[in-house]
Design a protein around this nucleic acid. Structure first.
Length: 274
DNA sequence: CTAGGGCGGAATTCCCATCA
DNA sequence: TGATGGGAATTCCGCCCTAG
């Protein structure tokens, strides 16, 4: 999809891009080879320049270059090409206002899920996060990343895709759980657990040191990032439907990866009030 | 509850094609 | 060639939404 995207060029919006596609100019190469593309001469020259730069950036695997030009709702355009760099992130906190303790973090990167726990190994997060070139989160632009930076001094990758806004562009609104339900994802024994439950689980864990409590908290945290990986593909496929390329570019939807942690039904009951 | 970034619509600027 | 109008892109601001 990236090689068919013109939106990232200055002076090009959704209308111009759609017009190019309709005129049979479907790829960067189509445009560059076209003797008289259906735009003004000045804009054509500017676009030609931008496309040559785009080709160079793609050849150099320069994710940041595209991330800077395709933000928020349009970020999905470069996702398929750079998917293998994605690090899916979700944090839990103790819920105490604007300066909370980060209690647990899950990071799914290159097929490996790593969990960080406050007081255990949270310090390892910095170096692992530094290896991630493309961060994927849900509402992370507003929540996870600012808190990680403020509370842990962490530095997030420059390229960050917040699925909240990608999904919204695809017409799917609401919180993470609602989005999962929309695509038929099932949380099974974690049904009904939300972020506030994670706060309660953390308090319960501190008080009791019962391993089942921590395990339930981590299962919830892990379920969030495992869901992100699948939601991302759904979102891209949904947005492809609004382009002429859905038939050839639709991605296979992966299964939700197995959760290495097991939520204890008794602990779930304890914090959901069920 | 509280914070914060981004959406959405309106206003504004920019660009291009069309004319005389 | 210079003025003009329309359409598209960009900018700006208040409010919405979601996180734990």
């Amino acid at each position: 999809m990236l090689g068919r995207t013109f939106l990232h060029l200055p002076g090009v919006g959704p209308k111009s891009e759609a017009a190019l596609w309709a005129a049979g100019i479907r790829t960067w190469e189509d445009f560059l080879a076209h003797p008289a593309p259906p735009v003004g001469a000045g804009k054509a020259a500017l676009m030609r320049e931008g496309l040559l730069e785009s080709q160079a950036a793609l050849a150099a695997d320069d994710l940041d270059w595209f991330a800077a030009r395709l933000r928020t709702a349009t970020a999905w355009r470069f996702l398929p090409r750079f998917l293998h760099h994605a690090g899916y992130l979700d944090i839990e906190t103790d819920g105490t206002g604007s300066h909370p303790t980060v209690t647990a973090v899950s990071l799914l990167h290159q097929g490996r899920l790593t969990t960080y726990v406050h007081g255990r190994d949270m310090d390892r997060l910095h170096e692992d996060l530094a290896r991630v070139r493309l961060l994927v989160s849900f509402n992370g632009a507003c929540f996870d990343v600012p808190i990680l930076e403020r509370m842990l001094g962490a530095r997030a990758p420059r390229a960050h895709v917040d699925l909240r806004f990608v999904l919204r562009a695809a017409g799917v609104r609401g919180g993470l759980k609602a989005c999962e339900r929309h695509f038929g994802l099932n949380r099974r024994e974690l049904d009904g657990v939300d972020g506030w439950c994670a706060v309660l689980l953390w308090r319960l864990w501190r008080r009791t040191r019962d391993q089942r409590v921590l395990e339930t908290l981590l299962a919830y945290n892990a379920a969030d990032v495992l869901g992100l990986e699948v939601l991302l593909v759904h979102a891209v496929n949904e947005l492809l439907l609004a382009t002429p390329f859905a038939a050839e570019l639709t991605l296979p939807v992966p299964r939700v990866a197995p959760n290495p942690f097991r939520a204890d039904p008794e602990m779930v009951r304890a914090v959901t009030g069920g």
